[in-house]
Design a protein around this nucleic acid. Sequence first.
DNA 1: CTTGACTCCGTACCATGATACGGGGTTTAG
DNA 2: CTAAACCCCGTATCATGGTACGGAGTCAAG
Lengths: 138, 138
Amino acid sequence: MKESLTIGKLATASHVNVETIRFYERKGILKQPKKVGAFRHYPHHYIARIKFIKRSQELGFTLKEAGELLSLSVKSQSKCGDVLEKTEEKIHEIEKKIKDLKEMKKSLERLANCCEDRSLPLSECPVLECFMVKGKEK
Amino acid sequence: MKESLTIGKLATASHVNVETIRFYERKGILKQPKKVGAFRHYPHHYIARIKFIKRSQELGFTLKEAGELLSLSVKSQSKCGDVLEKTEEKIHEIEKKIKDLKEMKKSLERLANCCEDRSLPLSECPVLECFMVKGKEK
DNA sequence: CTTGACTCCGTACCATGATACGGGGTTTAG
DNA sequence: CTAAACCCCGTATCATGGTACGGAGTCAAG
Protein backbone atom coordinates (compact mmCIF):
# COMPACT_ATOMS: atom_id res chain seq x y z
CA MET A 1 0.00 0.00 0.00
CA LYS A 2 2.83 2.45 -0.64
CA GLU A 3 0.57 4.64 -2.76
CA SER A 4 -2.21 5.22 -0.29
CA LEU A 5 -2.32 6.43 3.28
CA THR A 6 -5.41 7.12 5.33
CA ILE A 7 -5.44 10.33 7.27
CA GLY A 8 -4.55 8.48 10.45
CA LYS A 9 -1.55 6.77 8.89
CA LEU A 10 -0.40 10.02 7.37
CA ALA A 11 -0.76 11.77 10.71
CA THR A 12 1.29 9.10 12.47
CA ALA A 13 3.93 9.06 9.78
CA SER A 14 4.37 12.81 9.76
CA HIS A 15 4.06 13.26 13.53
CA VAL A 16 1.05 15.52 13.55
CA ASN A 17 -2.50 15.25 14.71
CA VAL A 18 -5.24 14.06 12.38
CA GLU A 19 -7.11 17.26 13.15
CA THR A 20 -4.11 19.26 12.09
CA ILE A 21 -4.21 17.72 8.64
CA ARG A 22 -7.89 18.46 8.30
CA PHE A 23 -7.20 21.96 9.53
CA TYR A 24 -4.52 22.47 6.87
CA GLU A 25 -6.94 21.31 4.22
CA ARG A 26 -9.66 23.65 5.40
CA LYS A 27 -7.14 26.47 5.26
CA GLY A 28 -6.01 25.51 1.78
CA ILE A 29 -2.44 24.90 2.95
CA LEU A 30 -2.58 21.27 1.97
CA LYS A 31 -4.36 20.13 -1.16
CA GLN A 32 -7.23 17.78 -0.55
CA PRO A 33 -6.43 14.33 -1.87
CA LYS A 34 -8.73 12.06 -3.78
CA LYS A 35 -11.23 10.16 -1.77
CA VAL A 36 -11.72 6.46 -2.00
CA GLY A 37 -15.36 6.18 -1.10
CA ALA A 38 -15.85 8.67 1.70
CA PHE A 39 -12.27 8.51 2.94
CA ARG A 40 -9.24 10.60 2.07
CA HIS A 41 -6.41 8.63 0.54
CA TYR A 42 -3.03 10.32 0.44
CA PRO A 43 -0.09 9.56 -1.79
CA HIS A 44 3.03 8.81 0.19
CA HIS A 45 4.74 12.11 -0.63
CA TYR A 46 2.27 13.98 1.59
CA ILE A 47 4.50 12.97 4.48
CA ALA A 48 7.26 15.09 2.99
CA ARG A 49 4.84 17.96 2.46
CA ILE A 50 3.71 18.02 6.04
CA LYS A 51 7.26 17.78 7.31
CA PHE A 52 8.14 20.65 5.06
CA ILE A 53 5.36 22.76 6.55
CA LYS A 54 6.53 21.94 10.06
CA ARG A 55 10.13 22.72 9.21
CA SER A 56 9.14 26.05 7.73
CA GLN A 57 7.20 26.95 10.83
CA GLU A 58 10.12 26.09 13.07
CA LEU A 59 12.16 28.55 11.06
CA GLY A 60 9.79 31.38 11.68
CA PHE A 61 7.48 31.25 8.68
CA THR A 62 3.77 31.55 9.24
CA LEU A 63 1.51 28.75 8.19
CA LYS A 64 0.42 30.81 5.23
CA GLU A 65 4.02 31.40 4.16
CA ALA A 66 4.80 27.75 4.65
CA GLY A 67 1.93 27.02 2.31
CA GLU A 68 3.30 29.44 -0.25
CA LEU A 69 6.73 27.90 -0.12
CA LEU A 70 5.23 24.48 -0.41
CA SER A 71 3.13 25.42 -3.37
CA LEU A 72 6.23 26.79 -5.08
CA SER A 73 7.62 23.32 -4.91
CA VAL A 74 4.48 21.57 -5.90
CA LYS A 75 2.71 23.58 -8.55
CA SER A 76 3.90 22.05 -11.79
CA GLN A 77 2.14 24.66 -13.90
CA SER A 78 4.31 27.46 -12.55
CA LYS A 79 7.36 28.58 -14.49
CA CYS A 80 10.81 28.44 -12.98
CA GLY A 81 11.02 32.23 -13.21
CA ASP A 82 8.03 32.74 -10.93
CA VAL A 83 9.39 30.30 -8.46
CA LEU A 84 12.78 31.91 -8.52
CA GLU A 85 11.33 35.29 -7.66
CA LYS A 86 9.34 34.10 -4.67
CA THR A 87 12.17 31.96 -3.50
CA GLU A 88 14.62 34.82 -3.59
CA GLU A 89 12.18 36.97 -1.69
CA LYS A 90 12.10 34.36 1.03
CA ILE A 91 15.87 34.09 0.98
CA HIS A 92 16.14 37.80 1.63
CA GLU A 93 13.67 37.55 4.48
CA ILE A 94 15.74 34.79 5.99
CA GLU A 95 18.93 36.80 5.58
CA LYS A 96 17.35 39.68 7.41
CA LYS A 97 16.23 37.44 10.24
CA ILE A 98 19.73 36.02 10.53
CA LYS A 99 21.20 39.50 10.59
CA ASP A 100 18.77 40.63 13.29
CA LEU A 101 19.40 37.55 15.36
CA LYS A 102 23.12 38.13 15.16
CA GLU A 103 22.63 41.62 16.47
CA MET A 104 20.47 40.30 19.26
CA LYS A 105 23.14 37.76 20.07
CA LYS A 106 25.76 40.47 20.21
CA SER A 107 23.60 42.46 22.58
CA LEU A 108 23.20 39.46 24.83
CA GLU A 109 26.92 38.79 24.73
CA ARG A 110 27.59 42.35 25.75
CA LEU A 111 25.22 41.80 28.64
CA ALA A 112 26.99 38.58 29.55
CA ASN A 113 30.42 40.21 29.44
CA CYS A 114 29.20 43.12 31.41
CA CYS A 115 28.31 40.67 34.16
CA GLU A 116 31.36 38.48 33.84
CA ASP A 117 33.73 41.28 34.65
CA ARG A 118 32.43 41.83 38.11
CA SER A 119 30.27 39.76 40.40
CA LEU A 120 28.36 42.72 41.58
CA PRO A 121 24.65 43.02 42.04
CA LEU A 122 23.16 43.95 38.72
CA SER A 123 22.28 47.37 39.95
CA GLU A 124 25.89 48.33 39.32
CA CYS A 125 25.64 47.28 35.70
CA PRO A 126 24.32 49.52 32.94
CA VAL A 127 22.41 46.68 31.38
CA LEU A 128 19.43 48.09 29.67
CA GLU A 129 21.65 50.52 27.81
CA CYS A 130 23.79 47.55 26.92
CA PHE A 131 20.75 46.01 25.26
CA MET A 132 19.41 49.00 23.53
CA VAL A 133 22.43 50.21 21.59
CA LYS A 134 21.27 48.79 18.30
CA GLY A 135 17.58 49.52 18.83
CA LYS A 136 16.27 50.78 15.53
CA GLU A 137 13.47 53.15 14.71
CA LYS A 138 10.86 51.69 12.42
CA MET B 1 8.33 66.57 32.18
CA LYS B 2 11.14 64.22 31.25
CA GLU B 3 10.45 62.06 34.26
CA SER B 4 6.80 61.32 33.65
CA LEU B 5 4.83 60.04 30.69
CA THR B 6 1.16 59.24 30.66
CA ILE B 7 0.19 55.97 29.05
CA GLY B 8 -0.82 57.75 25.87
CA LYS B 9 2.49 59.56 25.56
CA LEU B 10 4.37 56.38 26.25
CA ALA B 11 2.33 54.54 23.64
CA THR B 12 3.00 57.21 21.03
CA ALA B 13 6.68 57.38 21.87
CA SER B 14 7.17 53.63 21.67
CA HIS B 15 4.89 53.07 18.68
CA VAL B 16 2.43 50.78 20.32
CA ASN B 17 -1.20 50.95 21.24
CA VAL B 18 -2.28 52.14 24.69
CA GLU B 19 -4.16 48.88 25.07
CA THR B 20 -1.00 46.96 24.37
CA ILE B 21 0.72 48.59 27.31
CA ARG B 22 -2.20 47.81 29.58
CA PHE B 23 -2.13 44.28 28.22
CA TYR B 24 1.58 43.87 29.01
CA GLU B 25 0.92 45.05 32.53
CA ARG B 26 -1.92 42.64 33.05
CA LYS B 27 0.36 39.86 31.84
CA GLY B 28 3.17 40.93 34.14
CA ILE B 29 5.50 41.58 31.21
CA LEU B 30 5.80 45.23 32.07
CA LYS B 31 5.97 46.41 35.64
CA GLN B 32 3.14 48.67 36.66
CA PRO B 33 4.39 52.17 37.30
CA LYS B 34 3.40 54.44 40.13
CA LYS B 35 0.14 56.22 39.76
CA VAL B 36 -0.32 59.93 40.21
CA GLY B 37 -3.89 60.07 41.36
CA ALA B 38 -5.68 57.49 39.27
CA PHE B 39 -3.32 57.77 36.32
CA ARG B 40 -0.24 55.76 35.46
CA HIS B 41 2.93 57.82 35.23
CA TYR B 42 5.88 56.21 33.49
CA PRO B 43 9.54 57.07 33.77
CA HIS B 44 11.07 57.83 30.42
CA HIS B 45 13.04 54.58 30.20
CA TYR B 46 9.83 52.62 29.68
CA ILE B 47 10.12 53.60 26.04
CA ALA B 48 13.30 51.56 25.80
CA ARG B 49 11.65 48.68 27.59
CA ILE B 50 8.76 48.50 25.19
CA LYS B 51 11.04 48.78 22.21
CA PHE B 52 13.10 45.98 23.63
CA ILE B 53 10.03 43.77 23.90
CA LYS B 54 9.07 44.55 20.32
CA ARG B 55 12.57 43.86 19.08
CA SER B 56 12.64 40.53 20.87
CA GLN B 57 9.35 39.54 19.34
CA GLU B 58 10.53 40.41 15.86
CA LEU B 59 13.38 38.01 16.42
CA GLY B 60 11.10 35.13 17.21
CA PHE B 61 10.85 35.27 20.98
CA THR B 62 7.47 34.91 22.58
CA LEU B 63 6.08 37.68 24.69
CA LYS B 64 6.86 35.66 27.79
CA GLU B 65 10.47 35.18 26.68
CA ALA B 66 10.73 38.84 25.82
CA GLY B 67 9.57 39.54 29.35
CA GLU B 68 12.20 37.21 30.75
CA LEU B 69 14.94 38.84 28.72
CA LEU B 70 13.74 42.22 29.82
CA SER B 71 13.64 41.27 33.44
CA LEU B 72 17.22 40.03 33.18
CA SER B 73 18.11 43.56 32.33
CA VAL B 74 15.95 45.21 34.86
CA LYS B 75 15.91 43.19 38.05
CA SER B 76 18.52 44.83 40.20
CA GLN B 77 18.14 42.30 42.97
CA SER B 78 19.41 39.46 40.82
CA LYS B 79 23.06 38.49 40.94
CA CYS B 80 25.20 38.65 37.86
CA GLY B 81 25.66 34.88 38.01
CA ASP B 82 21.95 34.21 37.63
CA VAL B 83 21.70 36.65 34.82
CA LEU B 84 24.68 35.17 33.09
CA GLU B 85 23.13 31.73 33.09
CA LYS B 86 19.83 32.81 31.62
CA THR B 87 21.53 35.04 29.15
CA GLU B 88 23.75 32.27 27.88
CA GLU B 89 20.73 30.04 27.53
CA LYS B 90 19.13 32.65 25.32
CA ILE B 91 22.34 33.03 23.35
CA HIS B 92 22.30 29.33 22.61
CA GLU B 93 18.67 29.53 21.53
CA ILE B 94 19.56 32.33 19.17
CA GLU B 95 22.49 30.40 17.78
CA LYS B 96 20.23 27.47 17.07
CA LYS B 97 17.75 29.70 15.31
CA ILE B 98 20.52 31.15 13.18
CA LYS B 99 21.78 27.70 12.33
CA ASP B 100 18.32 26.52 11.34
CA LEU B 101 17.70 29.60 9.25
CA LYS B 102 21.00 29.08 7.46
CA GLU B 103 19.97 25.55 6.59
CA MET B 104 16.64 26.78 5.36
CA LYS B 105 18.39 29.38 3.28
CA LYS B 106 20.61 26.74 1.75
CA SER B 107 17.58 24.66 0.88
CA LEU B 108 15.96 27.63 -0.79
CA GLU B 109 19.15 28.40 -2.69
CA ARG B 110 19.28 24.85 -3.94
CA LEU B 111 15.74 25.33 -5.17
CA ALA B 112 16.68 28.59 -6.81
CA ASN B 113 19.69 27.07 -8.55
CA CYS B 114 17.70 24.13 -9.68
CA CYS B 115 15.42 26.59 -11.49
CA GLU B 116 18.12 28.91 -12.75
CA ASP B 117 19.76 26.27 -14.91
CA ARG B 118 16.81 25.77 -17.16
CA SER B 119 13.71 27.81 -17.85
CA LEU B 120 11.56 24.77 -18.05
CA PRO B 121 8.15 24.25 -16.53
CA LEU B 122 8.70 23.23 -12.97
CA SER B 123 7.44 19.78 -13.68
CA GLU B 124 10.88 18.98 -15.08
CA CYS B 125 12.52 19.98 -11.83
CA PRO B 126 12.91 17.64 -8.86
CA VAL B 127 12.02 20.37 -6.44
CA LEU B 128 10.40 18.82 -3.48
CA GLU B 129 13.34 16.44 -3.15
CA CYS B 130 15.58 19.47 -3.39
CA PHE B 131 13.81 20.88 -0.36
CA MET B 132 13.66 17.81 1.72
CA VAL B 133 17.27 16.70 1.72
CA LYS B 134 17.97 18.17 5.13
CA GLY B 135 14.61 17.28 6.61
CA LYS B 136 15.33 15.97 10.06
CA GLU B 137 13.43 13.52 12.18
CA LYS B 138 12.42 14.84 15.52
C1' DC C 1 -23.26 -9.79 10.09
C1' DT C 2 -21.60 -7.79 13.95
C1' DT C 3 -18.08 -5.30 16.42
C1' DG C 4 -14.31 -2.29 16.90
C1' DA C 5 -11.28 0.74 14.79
C1' DC C 6 -11.15 4.21 11.93
C1' DT C 7 -13.15 8.14 9.35
C1' DC C 8 -16.51 11.74 8.30
C1' DC C 9 -18.08 16.64 9.35
C1' DG C 10 -19.31 20.56 11.94
C1' DT C 11 -18.69 23.03 15.84
C1' DA C 12 -16.61 24.31 20.15
C1' DC C 13 -12.77 25.37 22.61
C1' DC C 14 -7.76 26.59 23.83
C1' DA C 15 -3.52 29.79 24.09
C1' DT C 16 -1.17 33.78 22.43
C1' DG C 17 -0.94 38.52 21.34
C1' DA C 18 -3.20 41.87 20.75
C1' DT C 19 -7.29 45.48 19.65
C1' DA C 20 -11.86 47.58 20.36
C1' DC C 21 -15.73 49.24 23.06
C1' DG C 22 -18.34 51.51 26.43
C1' DG C 23 -19.50 53.89 30.52
C1' DG C 24 -17.40 56.42 33.57
C1' DG C 25 -13.74 59.73 35.97
C1' DT C 26 -10.02 63.41 35.38
C1' DT C 27 -7.50 67.12 33.71
C1' DT C 28 -6.57 71.10 31.22
C1' DA C 29 -7.36 74.94 28.00
C1' DG C 30 -10.30 78.55 27.02
C1' DC D 1 -17.23 76.39 34.42
C1' DT D 2 -17.53 73.60 30.67
C1' DA D 3 -16.06 70.79 26.91
C1' DA D 4 -12.43 68.31 24.59
C1' DA D 5 -9.08 65.18 25.31
C1' DC D 6 -7.35 61.95 27.89
C1' DC D 7 -7.41 58.10 31.29
C1' DC D 8 -9.72 54.34 34.14
C1' DC D 9 -11.40 49.35 34.08
C1' DG D 10 -13.73 45.34 32.58
C1' DT D 11 -15.19 42.80 28.97
C1' DA D 12 -15.64 41.45 24.16
C1' DT D 13 -13.67 40.51 19.90
C1' DC D 14 -10.10 39.28 16.54
C1' DA D 15 -6.36 36.37 14.06
C1' DT D 16 -3.39 32.49 14.21
C1' DG D 17 -2.54 27.74 14.82
C1' DG D 18 -4.21 24.38 16.43
C1' DT D 19 -6.97 20.57 19.63
C1' DA D 20 -11.17 18.26 21.23
C1' DC D 21 -15.79 16.41 20.87
C1' DG D 22 -19.74 14.02 19.37
C1' DG D 23 -22.90 11.75 16.46
C1' DA D 24 -22.83 9.31 12.31
C1' DG D 25 -20.90 6.62 8.43
C1' DT D 26 -17.49 3.00 6.78
C1' DC D 27 -14.42 -0.72 6.49
C1' DA D 28 -12.19 -5.11 7.67
C1' DA D 29 -11.62 -9.21 10.65
C1' DG D 30 -13.70 -12.87 12.76
